[in-house]
Amino acid sequence: MTQKHIFFALFTALAFRAWAWPRLRRLVAVGCSYKAKALASALFVSGLDLEPDSAPEVSDEAYLLMRLFGATVDREARSVTCSFFGFQPRTAAWRPGFGAALTPGALPLAAPPR
């Protein structure tokens, strides 16, 4: 392999990473957020008795790929966290009167209704 080939391979890999990375990040972030929010609302607002890993809301038909996103339910804190093998974790938490909301970053949630 010549130096030219190595440069070409490196360039291609970097270009692919630059193109693919934001798309992959968005795919995983949206998938984890959707699953966390859907499960938190189903469990803590609707009060459904469902298995997080097999609930049709997040695992059937068009949602088949969401099975790859692991869900952890904290029933005491009434929150659900989903991630792709620890990557891009997203949490949705329940608050009295306001249902479930995604809690990205450190932004505080709204105050409860008076």
């Binding site: 607002v45 009167g97 249902g99 995604l102 990205p104 932004l107 949630l109």
Partner: peptide, 8 residues
């Protein structure tokens, strides 16, 4: 129950 975004 009307849910909010993170800003309320």
């Amino acid at each position: 129950v009307f849910e909010t975004d993170a800003t309320g």
